[in-house]
Amino acid sequence: MTTHPYLEKICQTPHAKKLNLTLIKADKTSVTLKLPYSKEIIGDSINNFIHGGAVTTAIDTACGAAIFQKQKNLRALATLDLRVDYVCPAPSGADVNVYADCYHLTNTIAFVRATAYTDDIKAPIATAIGTFMRSNKPFPID
C-alpha cells in the first residue's frame, strides 16, 4: 500500500516533533505511528513509565493520519472528542506503537479507533475511540 508522501507532515507539527513521533506504516484507512521511549515523557519517575498524556498525543496524531488516509487528502482537522482506556502501563524503556483506523467518514465527521501497544497489538497498553470534525481548510504544514 502506498504511503502518501505528504502523510509524513503529520509528524512535523511542533508538538509531534517534540515527541519524535514517526510514521512507520500506512494502509487504506489506517496508519501506525511510533512514540519512541524517552526520559522527557516519563510520568512515573520511580518505575520510569511513560506519561498517559504522551500516549494520548500519539493516539490523537495517529487518528488524524488515519483520517487522511481514508479521505485521501490532507486537510485541517479538529478533534471533537477522544476517549482513551489505559489498559496497562507501557514497559519501561519500550517504544510505543499506535495503530489507528478511520472506520467511517461522513461529509463532516470522521470516526476513528486506535490501539497503542509495544510488541504485540493483541496485548495493548491503551485503546481509544474518537471523533473529528473534517474541513476544507489546508493542513497547516507546508
Binding site: T13, H15, G52, G53, T57, D60, A76, L82
Partner: peptide, 24 residues
Amino acid sequence: TEDNIGNPAIPALHGGAIAGFMEN
C-alpha cells in the same frame, strides 16, 4: 511554548498536549 503547537497556521495547541496537561 512553541513545542506544544499542533497547528502552526492558527497557531493552536496540539490536542494531545491539552489532554496530557488536563490528565496530569
